[in-house]
Amino acid sequence: MKKLDNNGKHTKIDVKRNDEIGYLMKTFNTMSYNIDYLVNVNYREKLTRKEAQIKALQSQINPHFIFNTLENINWLAQLNGINEISTTVTALANIMEASICRGSKLVTL
């Protein structure tokens, strides 16, 4: 029991008895295994959840970053009076906006 308390990992006791003490030792082994299993399952679940959250955030950041960059280019073109670049970048931003479903679900042709 001290090993389990000190390192927190599954510790197995060799059981060579068939009396109440042996039963207690077997039960301790089962309890130690179950604790170790549940800690590992809980850890993996939290790790998987965090990885999924990071991936979700990354997938949101990338399109928005590109969209905002296109908007900056659009405004720079408008400020400098370059209407062709502004029109092209605005069209590209509209296509991108439709692809990430930022606007309505229907896309007119």
Score class of each variant (00 low, 15 high):
residue 37 Y to L: 08
residue 91 A to D: 13
residue 66 I to Q: 07
residue 98 A to T: 06
residue 94 N to D: 12
residue 104 S to W: 05
residue 57 L to Q: 04
residue 71 E to G: 08
residue 32 S to R: 01
residue 26 K to H: 04
residue 6 N to T: 04
residue 71 E to H: 10
residue 108 T to Q: 13
residue 38 L to Y: 06
residue 68 N to W: 02
residue 84 E to G: 07
residue 34 N to L: 11
residue 90 T to P: 01
residue 58 Q to I: 01
residue 25 M to S: 01
residue 50 K to D: 10
residue 66 I to V: 12
residue 76 L to Q: 06
residue 10 H to E: 14
residue 37 Y to S: 02
residue 67 F to T: 04
residue 101 C to Y: 08
residue 99 S to D: 13
residue 78 Q to F: 04
residue 22 G to C: 02
residue 24 L to S: 09
residue 22 G to H: 03
residue 21 I to E: 10
residue 55 K to C: 05
residue 5 D to F: 01
residue 56 A to Q: 09
residue 87 T to I: 07
residue 91 A to W: 07
residue 2 K to L: 13
residue 65 F to I: 07
residue 85 I to L: 15
residue 86 S to M: 02
residue 63 P to K: 11
residue 31 M to T: 03
residue 38 L to Q: 04
residue 31 M to C: 01
residue 31 M to I: 05
residue 89 V to E: 06
residue 56 A to N: 07
residue 77 A to H: 04
residue 17 R to H: 00
residue 85 I to S: 06
residue 96 M to N: 09
residue 41 V to R: 06
residue 30 T to H: 01
residue 22 G to F: 04
residue 94 N to G: 14
residue 53 Q to K: 08
residue 20 E to M: 05
residue 41 V to D: 01
residue 84 E to C: 02
residue 68 N to Y: 04
residue 25 M to C: 02
residue 1 M to K: 08
residue 70 L to E: 11
residue 76 L to R: 08
residue 90 T to V: 04
residue 74 N to C: 11
residue 35 I to F: 00
residue 104 S to Q: 12
residue 7 N to Q: 00
residue 4 L to Y: 01
residue 72 N to G: 11
residue 99 S to A: 11
residue 107 V to I: 15
residue 82 I to M: 08
residue 85 I to K: 08
residue 39 V to A: 06
residue 13 I to P: 01
residue 10 H to M: 15
residue 9 K to G: 00
residue 91 A to Q: 14
residue 82 I to D: 15
residue 98 A to E: 13
residue 58 Q to S: 08
residue 85 I to V: 15
residue 106 L to Y: 09
residue 49 R to M: 08
residue 70 L to R: 06
residue 50 K to L: 15
residue 70 L to S: 06
residue 14 D to V: 03
residue 75 W to Y: 10
residue 33 Y to F: 13
residue 108 T to E: 14
residue 32 S to W: 02
residue 63 P to W: 13
residue 33 Y to C: 03
residue 39 V to C: 01
residue 25 M to G: 00
residue 49 R to S: 11
residue 89 V to S: 05
residue 38 L to F: 06
residue 58 Q to G: 08
residue 11 T to W: 00
residue 86 S to R: 13
residue 87 T to N: 12
residue 19 D to I: 04
residue 22 G to D: 07
residue 102 R to F: 11
residue 59 S to Q: 12
residue 13 I to V: 14
residue 46 K to D: 04
residue 68 N to P: 00
residue 32 S to M: 12
residue 85 I to R: 07
residue 70 L to G: 12
residue 48 T to L: 09
residue 79 L to S: 14
